[in-house]
């Protein structure tokens, strides 16, 4: 469904991502793990069209979409839940969801709003509250629900557990599991490697802007060097 080949993205003279190649098949849940500064967010933002890649190609559903704008990619079926959630804090929960479904017809949007209310009971209780008043966990659920409103073929999430208390991290991973059961295609960036590996079909490990390992959750969990890759082996 998504094929990324040789993707390189630069900030000025700095290559934040070098020669990244990955694929996501329909119905798969793919994890993207690695330490801070490894280039995970850069990878997602490049695929979502927020950053212009310096080299490489991105194709989605067999169509070359390298360099497309985010609004175009969303219409093609590719949605991103951005890092730090970035919900619209001055708008109500309902309005946040509505803007997520801006590309849909009014009738579809209305029926999807009902569906989200059912899928996320926490949000239903705060339907007309300004999103700025939500707790971290509620805000994360809103961000995911908002992205689902566009009925994406591929949903990308950037660090959905960031800054959440342990109990809420459980909520997020339960949600990922639910979405996986529904057969949705997910590409998830996570720092919480152990849990992400357990929750995904396959995973890629990034470090210093490069993909350094790939495999199924069990394969990667079994590898002894994973801990070192994660916390750094430079001085050890």
């Amino acid at each position: 469904m998504l094929e990324v080949a040789g993707l390189t993205t630069k900030y000025g003279a700095i290559s934040a991502l070098r020669d990244a190649t990955l694929t996501v098949g329909s119905g798969e849940v793919i994890g993207l793990i690695g330490p801070n500064g490894a280039g995970k967010t850069t990878l997602l933002n490049s695929v979502a069209g927020l950053l212009d890649p310096a080299a490489g190609s991105i194709s989605f559903d067999g169509v070359d979409v390298t360099g497309s704008s985010p609004e175009k990619l969303l219409r093609a079926g590719l949605a991103l839940v951005p890092e730090h959630r970035r919900i619209f804090t001055d708008m109500t929960v309902e309005e946040n969801l509505k803007i997520g479904g801006i590309t849909r017809s009014a009738a579809d949007r209305a029926s999807d709003l009902d569906e989200m209310a059912e899928l996320f009971p926490v949000l239903r209780d705060k339907w007309t509250t300004a999103a700025g008043f939500l707790s971290g966990g509620e805000a994360q659920q809103l961000a995911i629900a908002r992205a689902l409103m566009s009925r994406p073929k591929l949903l990308m999430m950037d660090e959905p557990s960031l800054g959440l208390a342990p109990i809420l991290v459980d909520v997020v991973f339960n949600l990922i599991a639910t979405l996986r059961e529904q057969g949705r295609t997910l590409l998830v960036v996570e720092q919480n490697a152990t849990r992400m590996l357990a929750a995904s079909d396959r995973a890629y490990v990034l470090r210093s802007g490069e993909i350094v390992a790939t495999g199924t959750g069990t394969e990667l969990s079994g590898r002894d060097d994973l801990f070192d890759t994660f916390v750094g082996g430079a001085g050890a």
């Binding site: 330490p35 801070n36 500064g37 070192d228 750094g232 082996g233 001085g235 050890a236």
Partner: peptide, 11 residues
């Protein structure tokens, strides 16, 4: 500050 435990422990 660093996320790189190797770097931090080395220094």
């Amino acid at each position: 500050i660093d996320h790189d435990l190797g770097f931090i422990t080395g220094i």
